[in-house]
Design a protein around this nucleic acid. Structure first.
Lengths: 222, 222
DNA sequence: GCTCGGGCGTGAAGTACCTCCGCCTCGAAC
DNA sequence: GTTCGAGGCGGAGGTACTTCACGCCCGAGC
């Protein structure tokens, strides 16, 4: 199973009005589609993460006919979420027709950038992926940014524990060493992984070290 | 915007035949819905990650009427991906009817576990979430595993720490409490977050508890 | 073959940490 | 307004944990 990181370039006529905001207005800096789901046969529900001016964005939403209803939730000074329900149109159908087929899946987030560019990831086998790409509307240019083997486990949080460290951690969690208050001692963990208490303790501390530093790094990046 | 980590318990009659495999057969250990999308008005496409016996799983898929077509990709000895297209049925519609409304979004992965249990995450404001929960079919029990503010930037791995717990953890990592061996004591952490050593210690242990259990849960799901 | 580094393993000694208790604050729910 | 629960805070006491020094094994590299 491969993944494709794609860049789609919409011609000016096909750019979604909201997407156009990102391009033309300085008020909206980032527009990311986080999740989408079927609402009914003619419309879809989306969750966007946006950075920029809430009022400008809301005005834009109100001015677009296809958008039935929306709801905005602020996060902090710059960021907010937008829920919206949108009627499907011809462009969507053309896109869906190609990307919605057995063997191909679009993975959020979809990143809408200036100049009518959207970046997204698609999963599937080479054949179906090629077909899906070929089936895109002619006027939409596509460029492949990256290709690779897809392993969804790689997207998860990995602190890089050794096998024994993981064993110790698993045993510790399992037997209640990490309850609060603890319901198991290092000694019990040691028994479970068949090692001396001091050994188990070292594994646990190394595991903790790796976990916590990896976690803080993750938060810095995010 | 909140997120709910939910556990749904399907009564035996409503358990999906494939989900039943996880319960009854030793041949399939894990069944995780990674992505789903609309195929057409009556069916959906899904990507599953499965650990277990490919042949048993394939046979099961063939024996289920609702499943139109499928495609399997091996990863390694135990794991494989499954693409499939499935006709929607009454249970799906009932679920969708409640979960597919403005203001609520279901976020993959959905983890199918033994005993007809499925775990998933739902996003939205309190009101819509409550309504969605209330609107679930009566025969499906639901339990809320965790609640929190949703931030997609953190969504990848969220142990659900409180603010002070996070403060303590950040200070601890920063000043070397989680080095191996430790280069800072609880007391130093306490000073940094301006609290008594015992308070700092409690925060750290609670944080550790949350981190480790969340991590093991992630690995179970993953 | 030798060396070097990293991971794993262990016992002993000392203290740093965990637990428990009581109290306070805050927000949600009714 | 009131109740309830969860989170936060801190003091005192005892023990469970960390640390250290040392040794083994394995794989990589010259």
């Amino acid at each position: 199973m491969k993944y494709l990181r794609l860049e789609l370039r919409y011609p000016p006529a096909l750019i979604h009005p909201i997407h156009r905001l990102v391009d033309e207005s300085d008020a909206v800096e980032r527009d990311v589609l986080l999740h989408g789901s079927l609402f009914d046969e003619t419309a879809d529900t989306f969750l966007f993460y946006v950075e920029g001016d809430v009022d400008v964005y809301a005005d834009a939403l109100r001015s677009v006919d296809r958008i039935r209803e929306f709801e905005i939730t602020r996060i902090d000074e710059t960021g907010f979420y937008v829920f919206l329900t949108q009627r499907r149109d011809a462009v969507d159908e053309a896109m869906f027709g190609s990307l919605r087929r057995t063997g191909v899946v679009v993975v959020p987030p979809i990143d809408f950038r200036p100049d009518g560019v959207a970046r997204l990831t698609v999963l599937g086998e080479q054949g179906p992926l090629r077909e899906a790409l070929a089936g895109l509307p002619d006027r939409i240019e596509s460029e492949i940014l990256r290709v690779g083997e897809y392993d969804w486990r790689q997207h998860l949080f990995d602190p890089g524990l050794t096998e024994r460290q993981f064993d110790a951690l698993a045993a510790a969690v399992d037997c209640g060493y990490y309850e609060s208050p603890r319901t198991a001692s290092v000694e019990e963990v040691a028994e479970r992984i068949d090692a001396a208490p001091s050994t188990a303790s070292e594994h646990l501390r190394k595991a903790e070290s790796a976990m916590m530093t990896a976690f803080m790094e993750l938060r810095d990046v995010a």
